[in-house]
């Protein structure tokens, strides 16, 4: 007897409140600025900004602008298609921006992604990169299209 299978989708809408901190960050993106918060206790500049420092467990309100240039900490290029995720190949990485103490997750681009070894050579940890911004910015994380190697 063939076992029956039913295809069932979860279609559940969510409206996620970004809260005041992230909202301020997104407003900054609209103006082409990347904002972080400095924890007054440990002094670290946290990017992306959040309402409290997880290490010190204190509120954070000291806003600072950080650079849109930074250093690659690590990366990967995806070659397999996963349902609902971006079409391959796409490269993501963690970049520590100048003036920030934490890394930020972002896309890497501006280069041919077909050969992963070449991409890893171009963006290897320690490589300096710079943000490439969208022309028409909407106040979303994707206003930064990707980071590319600093020429």
């Amino acid at each position: 007897m063939e076992v029956k299978e039913f295809e069932i989708w979860w279609k559940i809408p969510f409206k996620h409140s970004a809260g005041l901190h992230a909202t301020k960050f997104f407003e900054g993106l609209k103006d082409g600025k990347i904002l972080g918060v400095r924890c007054e206790r440990c002094g670290r500049v946290l990017v992306p900004p959040r309402a409290f420092c997880e290490r010190c467990h204190v509120e954070t309100n000291d806003w600072v602008e950080v650079s849109d240039e930074g250093v690659v900490e690590t990366l990967t290029v995806t070659y397999m298609k996963f349902t609902g995720l971006p079409d391959p190949p796409y490269a993501i990485g963690v970049v520590k921006l100048d003036g920030a103490d934490t890394g930020m997750l972002c896309f890497l681009g501006g280069v041919d992604l077909s050969e992963w070894r070449k991409v890893h050579e171009t963006f290897k940890p320690g490589t300096r990169v710079k943000a490439v911004w969208k022309e028409e910015r909407e106040g979303k994380i994707t206003d930064i299209l990707y980071f590319e190697p600093l020429k």
Binding site: S17, G19, H21, A22, A51, H57, E59
Partner: peptide
Amino acid sequence: IHKEPFYNIAFTAAK
């Protein structure tokens, strides 16, 4: 009904 994300509310309760 909160406008802040739940983790920021949780932080306040913990503090």
